[in-house]
Design a protein around this nucleic acid. Structure first.
Length: 311
RNA sequence: GCCAGGGUAGCUCAGCUGGUAGAGUACCUCACUGAAAAUGAGGGUGUCCCCGGUUCGAGUCCGGGCCCUGGCA
């Protein structure tokens, strides 16, 4: 494949359970492509069923990147993900192939495509605990005032209850002496990007997600969570906070009846779908939306080829 | 058929001696720069079963009807 201008990136996004994985596979096969995951849960080894991770057969058909890159007790963080994705995309382009950035994690998609400059301050767990303890004893308002003293801009746009954001902002200040608001910039990479989004009516999105969860349960989701817990992965790890994982942990450890855990997981998934859609609305204005219920892969592939020819 | 209880938000239900309604959950909206499937903020979305009556005013009181549940036949 050759292109005269900027190297191409095809982005496939959409709410969870819309069929991104299947479409990406078919397009990658037709268009000489490789898939770069933009999914914050498929990065974890051992979390397969509940994350709807592409299986071995699918990954043998098309090369996948950014999947199974961490153990469940690790927490790579946005900057690491962004660097890995950038490297993978550049490498695929260099080899004359088409990178497909595929996933539903809005923050990852935006950070990669918009080129967020992320403050180079890795998470400092002990500092985070210290700040959280301060909030516990003095109140979140007090922590918010501490941030307002050093970084009024960020303080003004962070709700005092959002402890996680407060802690991160103070962490950046503590490590760099600079306000996080001044370190946040954007440097979009020199790519030609086409956004394709998979869309469905809200009630269909919920129904599909519910059905998929039921299928996951039948495929052994509960046992997957049990194995993770038995392997020593604590319930308060970020990786264990995912949809289904959290609720099934409550089932296994707290005796929450399975049907109730499943219902709670469904509701959490609906909530997540809403937040995904909010993100896509706000961050990606130029998405080419497709009806996920009637995908015509050949037509889409032709459209993408036409796009590739004119960039 | 008779007796008793009940029909209020999508669901389960609260609503004191009459002043056009609330809770949990579901649902909807929004923010988001190294935890993001995370975290946080906001929102009531309603023929109070129907018809009539009393009253300045009815979810609430009265009459009639319809439906649901249990018991007795």
């Amino acid at each position: 494949m050759r292109w005269t201008g900027r190297p191409p990136l095809l982005v496939i996004l959409g709410a969870t359970a819309t069929g991104k994985t299947g479409l990406a596979l078919q397009l990658a096969e037709r268009l000489n492509g490789e898939i770069v995951g933009a999914d914050s849960r498929q990065i974890y080894r051992g979390m397969d069923i509940g994350t709807a991770k592409p299986d071995a057969e699918q990954r043998a058909r098309v090369a996948h990147h950014l999947i199974d890159i961490a153990d469940p007790d690790e927490n790579p963080g946005l900057a690491v993900i962004q660097n890995l994705a950038n490297a993978a995309i550049a490498d695929i382009q260099r080899r004359g192939r088409l990178p497909l950035l595929v996933g539903g994690t809005g923050q990852y998609l935006s950070a990669i495509v918009e080129g967020w400059r992320i403050p180079e301050v890795p998470p400092n767990e002990s500092l985070r605990r210290e700040l959280e303890n301060f909030a516990l004893s003095h109140g979140r308002e007090a922590l918010h005032r501490r941030l307002a003293d050093v970084d009024p801009v960020t303080a003004a746009r962070t709700h005092p209850n959002n402890l996680r954001r407060l802690v991160r902002s103070l962490e950046v200040w503590h490590e760099t002496g600079q306000a996080i608001s001044e370190l946040q910039q954007r440097h979009p990479p020199p790519w030609s990007v086409l956004h394709v989004g998979l869309q469905l009516e809200r009630s269909d999105l919920y129904a599909r997600a519910d059905r998929r969860l039921e299928a996951m349960i039948e495929a052994g989701f509960v046992n997957e969570v049990r194995l993770l817990l038995e392997a020593g992965y604590s319930r308060d790890l970020p990786s264990m906070s995912g949809l289904g994982y959290r609720q099934l942990t409550a089932h296994l450890l707290d005796g929450l009846p399975l049907p109730e855990a499943i219902d709670a997981a469904k509701a959490a998934t609906h909530d997540f779908i809403r937040r995904q859609l909010t993100w896509f609305r706000g961050h990606h204005a130029d998405i080419r939306w497709l009806d996920a219920a009637s995908l015509e892969t050949d037509t889409i592939a032709t459209d993408v080829q036409r796009w590739l020819a004119q960039i």
